[in-house]
């Protein structure tokens, strides 16, 4: 969290007098290493890693560590989550609600069902609330007004009802099965 202003050692008098010292942008930003469960290494900027509440508290507990192991997270969803958080950092610096909404919508639109669902436990584990909201809403939008069969195959759920039980449930709310989208 140290910045150029509270730098303890001073350089030359000329840089001190310089009205706009350019040290902020010139200084390389700190990188943090994340290791996925399938042993892939991700180097991310500190600001991005601090978006992950889990990683942040890991560093607060043991500040000397340089690699954070993420035993519950595989490489593919992690890379997508990092991609999302990198963009969110930009919106934090330059708030633009319309652009952010557009980006978030595009981010989920181009993902497959599997990608979306695989990212949810990752976002949940890393405690990235904004992403979790976006993912849950995107999955809800994809199954809203879809058939029961579509939803079973979407989540890989086996039907454990008997034919009679299922027929009874369908009779109970027959209207809810009308006007459903094609699979």
């Amino acid at each position: 969290m140290s910045s150029s202003t509270d730098s303890p050692t001073l350089t030359t008098e000329t840089t001190q007098l310089s009205p706009q010292p350019d040290t902020e942008t010139a200084k390389p930003t700190k990188k943090i290493t994340l290791k996925s469960s399938d042993n892939q290494i991700f180097e991310v900027e500190e600001s991005v890693a601090m978006e992950f509440a889990t990683v942040k508290s890991f560093f607060e507990d043991s500040p000397s560590t340089d690699t954070v192991p993420l035993p519950n997270v595989t490489a593919k969803p992690l890379s997508q989550v990092i991609e999302f958080c990198k963009e969110q950092i930009k919106f934090k610096a330059n708030p633009d609600e319309a652009q952010k909404k557009k980006y978030n919508a595009e981010f989920v639109t181009e993902k497959s069902d599997k990608d979306l669902v695989d990212m949810i436990p990752v976002a949940n584990y890393l405690e990235i609330k904004d992403l979790l909201d976006v993912l849950n809403q995107a999955v809800a939008d994809r199954i809203e007004n879809k058939s029961v069969e579509y939803v079973r195959s979407f989540f890989g759920i086996d039907n454990d009802f008997t034919a009679e039980e299922e027929a009874a449930l369908r009779r109970e709310h027959a209207w809810a099965y009308e006007g459903v989208d094609e699979d």
Binding site: L132, N136, Q137, V139, A140, I143, E144, N145, K146, S147, V148, V151, R152, I157, D158, N159, D160, F161, E166, L169, R170, H173, W175, A176, Y177, V180
Partner: peptide, 19 residues
């Protein structure tokens, strides 16, 4: 978290997804 975002009509239908 996902289901709380759905319309009631969808929820009534999805009662027959599984027990």
């Amino acid at each position: 978290e996902i289901l709380t975002r759905l319309a009631v009509k969808s929820l009534l239908r999805f009662k027959s997804v599984s027990k």
